[in-house]
Design a protein around this nucleic acid. Structure first.
Length: 163
DNA sequence: GCCAACGTTGGC
DNA sequence: GCCAACGTTGGC
């Protein structure tokens, strides 16, 4: 099994990276991804143990705050079955789930923070999806090369996580 | 299966 | 809050 690399987006208001790091178990859950391309990555591509860049959107300085590890790979998103949930999908059934979730485990924080601006300013990352115009996918595959470059930009990872 | 209308994402 | 870029929906 080849290890894969991802970029996972989370709205800052939903869960910041720091907030995730301060949870007792450091575990975060993705719910409500309702895009087929992203769904396919979650369902078919992600594997437990893969590494991912944690991207924060909808905030003052969007960018990558650190690293997480895929703790649980694609499983049916429970919110699609819950009629009271905003992500409820009447067309989904337990026998034939349409949407998938994954869990992450907080790994380490970048220092410095790698902002979207920094990513765009890096000539080596021109091909990276997240810097490209109109790219809105919330789950994106990242090449090992891109992953390594971003990690290097993130310099000396620090731990503000309380053990 | 085309395509206009609409809704959403997300940087700025 | 604006708006460009997409994805989805639904009439035909």
């Amino acid at each position: 099994m080849t290890e894969k690399y991802w970029l996972v987006k989370c709205e800052y208001d939903v869960c910041s990276f720091e907030e995730l790091g301060n949870r007792p178990n450091g575990i975060g859950y993705w719910r409500g991804v309702r895009n087929y391309q992203a769904r396919n990555f979650i369902r078919d591509g992600m594997q437990k143990g893969d590494s991912a860049l944690f991207y924060q959107s909808n905030c003052k300085e969007p960018g990558i705050a650190g690293l997480v590890e895929i703790a649980r790979a694609g499983y049916p998103d429970p919110s699609q079955f819950d009629a009271d949930n905003q992500y409820y999908d009447p067309k989904a059934s337990k026998d034939d789930p349409r949407w998938f979730s994954f869990d992450v485990q907080w790994a380490k924080a970048f220092e410095p923070y790698v902002s979207l601006k920094d990513l765009k300013n890096s000539p080596k990352l021109k091909e990276m999806k997240v810097v490209q115009r109109g790219q809105r996918l919330s789950i994106q595959p990242v090449t090992k090369r891109e992953f390594d470059i971003v990690c290097e930009m993130g310099g000396h990872s620090v731990s503000y996580r309380k053990k």
